[in-house]
Simulated scan of single mutants.
Amino acid sequence: MGSSGRESDRAAAGRDRDDEGRARNARPRDGLGRPLPHGTPGVARQPEGVVRSPQDTVAEARALLAAGKPFHAHEVFEDAWKSGPREERPLWRGLAQLAVGLTHAARGNTTGGPLLLRRGAGATEEWAAVTGRWRPYGMDVAALAAWARDLADEVERDTSPVDPGARAPRL
């Protein structure tokens, strides 16, 4: 039928878990978040669960995007999405989708990249339309959405991976 609690505990015993039993992934990753073989030097990950001000979130994500690290920027936006005020969560979720869409485009994923770029564009525009805030924290939501849709179209036309630093959005 199913495994007993003891079997589940034994299976989890060999996995990397935090103090609360949640899975951690200590496996090294490259600059685009792809897992590398154990023992390979990887790129340091963003710490998870950091509560930042919205201005600090934008500044840190901006720097990461400019450095060609959209996967890391996605993690910063995800922290804001999970810890920010309820009314702003759709904005941060949409921005995280834009960053992970760029990540997939840089990995050469011509299906997932455009899908996430368009989803993020729609989410941020919808949030701006509902709230009337088209320039939250100095970001131009309409310009970000246009950037995302243009990049999605480009990725579908030219299937080569994009340079994430060169194609990063201006926040």
Rank of each mutant, 00 (worst) to 15 (best):
N109R: 13
L171T: 11
P47I: 00
G31Y: 09
D79L: 09
R17Q: 12
L32V: 04
A80C: 06
R149I: 01
R17G: 01
V76S: 04
V130A: 14
E75I: 10
G31L: 07
A143G: 07
V141E: 02
G113E: 01
G21A: 05
L117P: 02
R10K: 14
P90A: 08
A73R: 01
E75S: 14
L91M: 00
L64S: 04
W81V: 02
E48Q: 15
A106M: 03
W134K: 08
D163T: 03
L144T: 05
L117R: 04
S3R: 14
A123H: 10
H74D: 11
R135I: 06
V162M: 03
Q46N: 07
R34T: 11
A166T: 10
A142K: 13
V76D: 02
G2K: 13
P161H: 08
Q55C: 03
E20D: 15
P35K: 10
A44W: 05
E7R: 13
D153P: 02
R86C: 00
L91P: 00
G2M: 13
A106Y: 01
P114F: 09
R107D: 11
G42L: 07
F71G: 12
L64H: 01
A12V: 07
R167I: 03
S8V: 15
G5I: 09
P37E: 14
L98N: 07
G21N: 06
R157H: 09
P169Q: 08
R170S: 14
V162D: 01
A11E: 14
G120N: 04
G113D: 01
V141S: 00
W127I: 00
A106L: 02
G112A: 07
V50R: 12
W81N: 06
E88Y: 10
D153N: 11
V43K: 04
R133A: 10
A142G: 12
E87S: 12
R118Q: 08
R29I: 10
A26E: 13
R89H: 07
A61K: 00
R62K: 13
G108T: 04
D150N: 14
A23E: 15
E7P: 01
G68F: 03
P90L: 03
V58P: 08
G33K: 09
R62C: 08
A44M: 09
